[in-house]
Design a protein around this nucleic acid. Structure first.
Lengths: 197, 197
DNA sequence: TGTACATCAGTGAACGCGCGTTCACTGATGTAC
DNA sequence: TGTACATCAGTGAACGCGCGTTCACTGATGTAC
């Protein structure tokens, strides 16, 4: 009673949406953000180029869905590196930041997509649902420390801007003058002292 | 003896290179990075779309030249805001950072172009010549302070990653959860204390 | 001062490319009866 | 159990678009003599 002969192309049976997001992640990893298009994702998923229209609101819809999946991987990466670190608040925070930087380094196209609003225009419930935990794990790692100023969330903001800026500068390959060898900097060299609450 | 009648199109007389860079800056300001192309710059400069080939090595060459000009404006903006600040080392540093953030906010497309190597592939002597002073004024403002770690240039790296990260996050409009209102943060709220040498 | 010539910036038509979108269609699936 | 029908995901051809690049050309400029 097998209906799918080996020679027939695989039927996605509603799973094409997921397959297209997977295809997008593959394209980002292989050829970067500029290679990402509806047609390229369809081709990589083994489907005609008109098929994605049944699952996404145009290219912005697909990009938003890919970015939403990116936040899942992003959060997992940070949690992994946090749990691999010794169990002190500072080590946990450094682990989170190490995961942040590792994700940016290992997934440059995806990282750029996730943090550039130009590529996303569609209200996608998965986007907010998946991105909030990323910020939550960072905030959680900052919680044991005293605020660095009176501004609410000042510690989170300081750490977040710092690690995000290093991630962006490493990606941009604008590493500044030779004496400022940003490529070899350890995050711990530039993270200020933080006092425990 | 006037040769150019008012009805004739302006002859650039070797100044077309500059006019095309100006056109690129206009396009970036008006329509953003995605609207920047050889043809668009040529049209804005009032010239046929094949003309830029006589002055630039393709699109990467033009983008590199535009970015190089951007660094001049960038440096001027930082110096302006530094000199407008009271003359203490910390105020000068905060002025530099204020200029950094103001430039990014006022020129989002240009800022992205300048700090994304994907758009630049050509060795352009102006690029290095113009970008080095930008880093120099930042380093100069950091010089009065003690290093924050043993790593060489640690203070510059800490300040640079911090201000750059805030600039990128403000641009990305990924401002995190509501309680972390990054849009309203003052840079002084997250810049750590720095000790004078 | 005038003539002949070389240079070269800019023109406009043409090319092929990949893109997002549309549209009539097909064919498998699920459902009502 | 079987039949008729509605649904709808995916197809493949076609469309127009803007892009970078090429290429023979033109016409103003500068120079040699």
């Amino acid at each position: 009673m097998v209906q799918e002969l080996p020679t027939k192309p695989p039927r996605h049976r509603g799973a094409l949406r997921i397959a297209l997001i997977d295809a997008g992640l593959s394209i980002l990893a292989a050829d970067g953000l500029s290679a990402l298009s509806l047609r390229a994702c369809a081709a990589r998923a083994g489907v005609s180029h008109a098929a994605p229209a049944h699952h996404f609101a145009g290219l912005p819809g697909l990009l938003t869905a890919i970015a939403a999946r990116g936040y899942v991987i992003f959060t997992q990466t940070m949690i992994h590196d946090r749990d691999a670190a010794p169990d002190t608040p500072r080590d946990a925070l450094i682990g989170i930041c190490r995961g942040y930087l590792r994700f940016a380094r290992e997934n440059p196209g995806l990282f750029t997509l996730m943090f550039n609003h130009v590529y996303q225009k569609v209200d996608d419930p998965d986007f907010d649902i998946n991105s909030e935990p990323a910020f939550a794990v960072l905030a959680q790692a900052c919680a044991p420390f005293e605020p660095v100023s009176d501004a609410p969330g000042s510690t989170e903001m300081m750490v977040w801007t710092q690690v995000h800026g290093l991630a962006c500068l490493l990606q941009s390959q604008r590493l500044g003058p030779p004496q400022l060898n940003l490529a070899s900097v350890e995050f711990t060299d530039i993270l200020p002292e933080l006092k425990l609450r």
